[in-house]
Design a protein around this nucleic acid. Structure first.
Lengths: 372, 372
DNA sequence: CAGATGTGGTCAAAGGTCTT
DNA sequence: TAAGACCTTTGACCACATCT
């Protein structure tokens, strides 16, 4: 290949462009000039030098020389579609960080703070607030009372969590109530499972008040359906194997919550949209994670694997409800109004307005509510 | 040959490509788009002109028009090696995935044939075997007896279906039994729902023996939990909106079946691998479909939407089991041994060997079995 | 065996991107 | 803003494999 020179400015050429052997500079200059229909006027004698160093001194003469060298204006095509951006990998992830995920993480953080502030005040054991807080094994075992209280706490926190999401507050009150009723049990189970991932003992789950409930012990306190065992086997362990992180958790929680097929919903389309937005965020996040981990042999299906936790969750939640129903039947547990309405879907709750009240009360009142 | 024009952009055509009369430009564009799984987004109103001069202005609309003109993505072959013959590792996995789907479709076809041959022989109504077999409305309504019989049929067919899958037959007999017991109810519901998609009446489902069960009528024949209504609202209608196809159905069925968290499984890893293989196939298939449908702004999450049918399925199946249990309790339905073992998970079934027998009997004996 | 058809691939010369 | 180094996409053209 003989390295030719640009017929316009004598710079190194990069091939033929628009009919003339030319450099990238003259190529670009000609295209811009034609596209924008520029009319240049020479300020001198219309005989300026057009060389590598001086080519930008006079546009009129440069364009003139382009034409003389053989460039044709009709070789300039129409504008094309935008092409894929080329950026560094780091930039991409930063750009694609989504508002939705940030929002969900913020909502989760809020509830975590509420929860831990309550635990600190109601529990008598001392806490190290540092990062090494993960040896739950030292904590006390859950009693029957703990189970009831932790479910109640989770429900209160669920309502607060939902209220902090604009996608939720924009809904009609009746739809808000329906969503909460239809998904509360599943979300509680999801929360318990995720919280239990970091336990070092494999036979227990960690309740909302940081008490531990052991698989074998649970059957003695009303867990007829082996809910605890199933949570560990079907949810916690798979989560561990997947090494599920907080972002995936909040996305999954929101997907579970914005369930368009719960009963008596009015604005199904809106809820479906919220669900799909979360789904998209989860998939994007998983795709990014696969690229970073380099485990990507085409498809690693991480998002699919996460979504496949949900059927188990659904089944277990249903059995949890049964457990609670039976426990109430035998007078084992004190079922309050919120629990009755959200978990048991009991229409004839003693205080049918409790949910409405929760939905409209400010966050501040919650902290005192949680303590008893 | 007549000098035809490109059906996409009106340029001179160079023959048929991928199913549409088109020019070399559109041919190359379509191949590149499908190969690289490009996701284009229209920056305007999704109605851009696609003509010789403007065809490069919007790739989204151009690809859209390629599909509308009849181009088929499955006409795009695998990438060939530049020098010659050798299949790469990537091609191998691709072939494997295709094989899996083909296998699942074959298994489904087998069961469909078994089912329809039985229906023809046991039902007294005449059948047109032609393509227009979809006016189920003319068929008879399901009686209580039909419900029991259709569940039984579905269970027998489920066992046959499973036996036709090598991933299943390679398992230990105990694991085979566990999988069947753990997933039978869900798979029945999935099958009923998919079969009901093509009904033109929106308030009924289509049982395995092609009888119709109406939502309102179901509550009179033991459907205390509104299972029929929930199937329609939570599964059939979403399936319709997604326009779910047979391949997606068989993949979802297999994913549901190879459930690594059913109780008492030994070879969890193997079953998990089977599940993930199906998941990969489903995702790949959905990605291809997304490219064609172009309803897609980056990610359309089709596979995720399909997987989100499963939690509902799980919940409904659980309620179906309750319904059957109650029906048996009130003597409404005749529960045979297979039903007792697979649906009700009744260990003390009258004939505890029925499942073992089914698992080892040849296909031929099934046809007579199904008739009564 | 030759021509028509329809896959696949190639690469010059269009395009666009993005830092300077 | 415009310039130009650098990257992506396009499509005319060519090599095969099948089929008639």
């Amino acid at each position: 290949m003989g390295e030719e020179l640009c017929n316009i400015c004598n710079d190194k050429s990069t091939g033929k462009h628009y009919g003339a052997v030319s450099c990238d500079g003259c190529k670009g200059f000609f295209r811009r000039s034609i596209r924008k229909r520029y009319h240049y006027v020479c300020r001198f004698e219309k005989c300026c030098d057009v060389t590598k160093n001086k080519r930008n001194a006079c546009r009129s003469c440069r364009l003139q020389k382009c034409v003389k060298a053989g460039m044709k204006a009709n070789a300039i095509q129409n504008e094309r579609d935008a092409i894929g951006k080329r950026k560094k990998a780091g930039d991409q992830t930063e750009t694609e960080k989504e508002e939705l995920i940030d929002q969900l993480v913020a909502a989760e953080t809020l509830c975590q703070q509420l929860r831990s502030s309550v635990i600190k005040r109601t529990q008598q054991v001392s806490y190290d607030c540092g990062k090494v807080k993960w040896n739950y094994e030292d904590d006390r075992r859950a009693t029957l009372d703990d189970i009831g209280k932790s479910i109640h706490q989770q429900l209160v926190l669920l309502v607060e969590w939902a209220k902090s999401l604009p996608q939720f507050t924009f809904l009609a009150i009746s739809d808000q109530a329906s969503l909460l009723k239809g998904t509360a049990a599943s979300i509680i189970v999801l929360g318990v499972a995720f919280r239990s991932i970091c336990l070092t003992v494999g036979d227990s789950i960690c309740l909302a008040n940081d008490t531990l409930l052991q698989k074998d012990h649970a059957t003695h306190v009303g867990d007829i359906n082996c809910v605890v065992g199933r949570i560990i086997d079907e949810v916690v362990n798979p989560m561990r194997r997947l090494n599920m992180d907080l972002i995936e958790y909040v996305a999954l929680k929101a997907i579970l919550f914005f369930n368009p097929v719960v009963r008596e919903l009015q604005d199904v389309a809106n809820i479906e949209n919220s669900r799909f937005a979360c789904l998209r965020s989860l998939q994007k996040r998983c795709a990014e994670k696969a690229v970073l981990a380099l485990e990507d042999d085409g498809f690693d299906c991480r998002s699919g694997k996460l979504l496949l936790l949900l059927p188990s969750l659904q089944a277990i939640a249903q059995q949890l409800v049964e457990d609670v129903q039976l426990a109430r039947l035998f007078g084992l547990v004190n079922v309050d109004a919120l629990m009755s309405e959200l978990i048991l879907n009991d229409q004839k709750a003693s205080d049918p307005q409790i949910l409405q009240t929760s939905l409209s009360s400010p966050v501040e009142s919650i902290k005192t509510e949680l303590e008893e």
